[in-house]
């Protein structure tokens, strides 16, 4: 199975950097997310994760390193968390970490908590 790597771009829209590694099971999204076609962008990530679960069926460590995302993106993050929760419920091993700079905590913490509560999956908030 091929890895999915997307280089982030900070232009009129903000495309996050994506590194989904099928060999290590470490999946990361980092940077900022504010896109013209949010649903389409995250669809490829969701499809990759679905394939990983079906073909590889090994543990997943999902690292979010996003320090800005708009509300449209947050809906897609929820889609990812739902998929991971589904895998966890079927005995898949999943760890979700969210790396957050201390100065961003006030701005991000509540929504990360809300995403965790809404998807019923534990998100380890790691303050940098």
């Amino acid at each position: 199975m091929e890895n999915l790597n997307i280089t982030g771009v900070h232009d009129v829209y903000f495309r996050p950097t994506v590194n989904l590694d099928a060999d290590t099971g470490i999946l990361e999204i980092s940077g900022e997310s504010y896109l013209e076609e949010t649903v389409k962008f995250y669809k490829q990530i969701l499809i990759w994760i679905e394939n990983y679960i079906q073909e590889i069926d090994k543990p997943i460590t999902f690292n979010f390193r996003l320090d800005y995302y708009n509300t449209t993106t947050s809906r897609s993050i929820l889609d990812i968390l739902d998929l991971l929760k589904l895998y966890q419920d079927k005995e898949g091993r999943v760890d979700v970490n969210w790396y957050c700079k201390e100065e961003e905590l006030e701005y991000l913490q509540e929504d990360i908590e809300d995403l965790a509560e809404d998807s019923d999956i534990e998100i380890n908030l790691i303050v940098l």
Binding site: E37, V39, T71, S74, R75, L78, E110, D114, E117, D118
Partner: peptide, 22 residues
């Protein structure tokens, strides 16, 4: 307000793909 946000975000997307929680 946080509960309302979670309910709305869980619902269907807007016609523009938005999460209805802006």
């Amino acid at each position: 307000l946080r509960r309302f946000k979670r309910e709305q975000r869980r619902g269907p997307r807007s016609s523009h793909g938005g999460a209805n929680i802006g």
